[in-house]
Design a protein around this nucleic acid. Sequence first.
DNA 1: GCGACAG
DNA 2: ATCTTGTCGC
Length: 231
Amino acid sequence: MSGDAVRNPGCHSWNLTPKEAAALQSVLAKKVVTEGKPGIKLVAGVDVHPAKETGMMQAAICVLSYPALELVEQKTALAEASFPYVPGLLSFREGPAVLAAFKRLKRQPDIILFDGHGIAHPRRFGLASHMGLLLDIPAIGCAKSRLYGSCGEPGLHKGNWSYLLDGRGDIIGGCLRTRDNVKPLYVSVGYKVNLDFALNAVLACCVKHRQPEPLRLAHRAAKGKTVLNDR
DNA sequence: GCGACAG
DNA sequence: ATCTTGTCGC
């Protein structure tokens, strides 16, 4: 792996091979802070959508007040899809667009929800951990399906959850029911936040749907639907 | 060697 | 993620 990538992890024009990217994750994972209970006035949701034939990735960030959950700012940005989708290396594909969108943001959120995992990852460095570290903002991984680890089926009611454990039995996240009788979400520490705090924050953002409100809005915005003017 | 595999 | 109609449920 090139030393440049380690010294300048914010540079996403890494022309890394998947193997080099994985090695970089193992190095950067040591910098991830896995505790914190940030005061939340603003919560953001981030999602990325692959544009049809353009080979571009469109990222959207929606910043909401907390706990009222009213949209206060939205920004989008395009970046080239310069890395393929490889399970475990999602941040190398979506990261550039995410960082570009953040540069346009005026209000800095106190915590960010990502559509993917945090430390519930083979090298403990999923999208939420990677972005949280680079931005130095508390982050939570909020994935729709499992990538790594195992857990029991949580109870069927909203708020029920079970631990997600790695091969050694260490806690790497929680499988959280965010609505009665719907598939659970996989919540994990991304950066500078405790698991229990993350679980409660995600739950507080789930008003009426399976997905927390910031991610729902970001999902729509990334697909092009305007939920609020970008400027 | 055979599965599993965020979006 | 994407390909895709009707259908079940609040």
